[in-house]
Design a protein around this nucleic acid. Structure first.
Length: 214
DNA sequence: TGAATGATCACG
DNA sequence: GTGATCATTCAT
């Protein structure tokens, strides 16, 4: 679809210092989870490698938040703070990564104010940079769908459990606003959950080839 | 439609 | 300690 000409981290940082790219700060995440999920569409996730980087443009997200009676039952935090989800109760702007189905990592961004739990699941993205290394990690995937799904997105970007707790403004993970504005954002029920289907908290860029469906 | 595959959590 | 569950993926 669209290519990102930047292929080295030095080039990214140069543009950040010149104000052409903006690294999202914790205040972006420290708001209502559903709003953050919607506004993350079109932002660029950069994973810093040794001397290069891998990057995707976020095209599909889901919101999970709340705890206690009446809270979103699909959220890990719904039944209170446990070792796995305690980071959701903490400061916003950090990665919440968990392992599921014995096979896949899932990448989330912690939202809301400290004390109230929330996170946005990053479900899909359009490959922008580091495409060769992503292909090596997912040799059977079609080029435009290297990160089309929350599990394979982590595979393509080599996001591991060890990334849990990483800040989203560096030095390993960066979420960047490069000025791109999605043309049309659609909303739907969340995918792959058995409860909480009444909440329309999935957001995606309409018609984008990296998204599973409309 | 179901197998793969293991961390997590609610029990006791 | 144990068993059910799970915000998935891919091949059948």
């Amino acid at each position: 679809m669209e290519s990102w000409s930047i292929s080295s981290f030095a080039a990214v940082w140069d543009k950040v210092e010149r104000g052409e790219l903006k690294v999202l700060q914790p205040d972006f995440y420290g708001r209502d989870t559903v709003t953050v999920a919607r506004e993350l569409l079109g932002k660029v996730l950069v994973v810093r490698e040794r001397s290069s980087l891998a990057a995707i443009r976020i095209t599909e997200t889901e919101a999970y938040h709340g705890t206690g009676l009446g809270a979103d039952p699909a959220a890990h935090c719904a039944r209170g703070e446990t070792p796995r989800c305690s980071i959701m109760f903490g400061d916003p702007g950090f990665a919440y990564v968990y392992f599921i189905y014995g096979m896949y990592e899932m990448l989330n961004f912690v939202t809301e104010r400290k004390g109230y739990p929330g996170a946005v699941l990053i479900r899909a993205g359009e490959p922008l940079a580091g495409i060769e290394v992503m292909k090596r990690r997912r040799p059977r995937a079609k080029p435009g769908r290297l990160a089309s799904g929350p599990g394979v997105l982590c595979r393509a970007l080599d996001i591991r459990l060890s990334h849990k707790g990483q800040a989203l403004w560096g030095p390993k993970l960066y979420v960047i606003d490069d000025g791109y504005e999605p043309e049309s954002i659609h909303v739907s029920k969340r995918v792959g959950i058995k409860v909480g289907q009444d909440r329309p908290w999935r957001f995606f860029i309409a018609g984008h080839p990296s998204v599973s469906q409309a």
